[in-house]
Structures are given as structure tokens and as C-alpha cells.
């Protein structure tokens, strides 16, 4: 009694007498991102980063809608460079389908120039030997992408010393 179909609810009786039934939840939802994340996601499609400034002067990217310390609504915006410094990284040897790149890559925490917080994304390098904390990276955007995180393809090293000479991933 393990076959699930429209007529058989798929109840399963185990040798020890325990009895289970399947329950599959699948339901479509949407999410209104609101003006703050909306501006950030729209900026990505234009190839740029925007950030909000906290009540203590800290620059948040991705932007914070409300100050994490005081709760104040944040409406002061600054443009942030598309280049930054890797604060930490981890190697992904076998990417899954849902991940940003289809070949091995590095997860990176990037602090963009001018920002006080780090952004989690991926860095496109051929092997972990090309990664180093403190290395410089720049964003690679998808030309003509719709607003959304998909507009930011990945980060890539700046300069030859990072072991990547211009996007050759062979």
C-alpha cells in the first residue's frame, strides 16, 4: 500500500504496524516587495547598486526598509559602487539547479565600496585556489534583465592576480 494516485491516497502500513499518509503542499504565492526593495531590484536591472543610510550613518546594501536598531523608516539613499572586497567565502563544488551558476563557484560575502554591510552572492572563478579573503571583485550584470535578483549574475575577480583573466571559465 505505497502507491499514491488520485484514487489511492497513498496510505502506507509499515511492518511494525505504524500507519502514515502523504501530505503534499504546493500553492502559488506572490510577494509585494514595497518601495525599498523595489528600488534596489530595479537598480540591479540598470546595472547599479543603491543603498539606504541608517540612523547611525551605516550604509545598508541590500537596503534596510527600517533601521534594525531604532526601527526608524529609512528614506535616505546613496549609490554604491559595483565593486567591493570579499570578506569571506566558501567553495561550492557541485551546484544544484536553483543556484546562480551551473558550474562550481564560490559563495562570497562582498562588502561593496561605500557600504557598511556585506552582500551574499557568488563569485565566478575556476577553482578555490583563485579565491582569497580580501580580494577585489566586481559585479557582472545580465544585459536586458528584468528587475530582480536575476539581474545580478555574479561577481568576478578584478585583475590578473585573482587567477581569472577576463571571464574565461574553461
Amino acid at each position: 500500500m505505497t502507491d499514491a494516485s488520485d484514487t489511492d491516497p497513498g496510505y502506507a502500513l509499515a511492518p511494525d504496524g505504524s500507519f502514515t499518509a502523504p501530505l503534499t503542499l504546493a500553492y502559488p504565492y506572490s510577494r509585494t516587495v514595497g518601495p525599498t526593495y523595489g528600488r534596489f531590484l530595479t537598480g540591479l536591472a540598470e546595472g547599479r547598486f543603491v543603498a539606504t543610510v541608517g540612523s547611525d550613518g551605516r550604509v545598508f546594501v541590500p537596503p534596510a526598509e527600517f533601521d534594525p536598531t531604532t526601527g526608524q523608516a529609512l528614506d535616505q539613499w546613496v549609490d554604491i559602487a559595483a565593486e567591493g572586497t570579499v570578506e569571506s567565502w566558501s567553495w561550492q563544488p557541485e551546484p544544484s539547479d536553483a543556484q546562480p551558476l551551473d558550474h562550481p563557484f564560490a559563495w562570497v560575502l562582498v562588502r561593496l565600496d561605500g557600504a557598511d554591510t556585506a552582500l551574499l552572492h557568488v563569485c565566478d572563478v575556476p577553482d578555490p585556489g583563485a579565491m582569497e579573503t580580501g580580494m577585489r571583485v566586481r559585479a557582472r550584470f545580465v544585459d536586458g534583465a528584468d528587475p530582480g535578483m536575476g539581474a545580478l549574475e555574479c561577481f568576478e575577480p578584478i585583475g590578473d592576480d585573482a587567477g581569472n583573466d577576463g571571464g574565461d571559465r574553461s
Binding site: V33, G34, F66
Partner: peptide, 13 residues
């Protein structure tokens, strides 16, 4: 019917 102008956080606030 749709407050597309705000996130859930913005609505609550």
C-alpha cells in the same frame, strides 16, 4: 484589494 505600494512591513508600520 491590493496595496502594491507597500511591503508587508510597510503595511504593518
Amino acid at each position: 484589494s491590493c496595496r502594491a505600494d507597500v511591503s508587508i512591513a510597510g503595511l504593518v508600520r
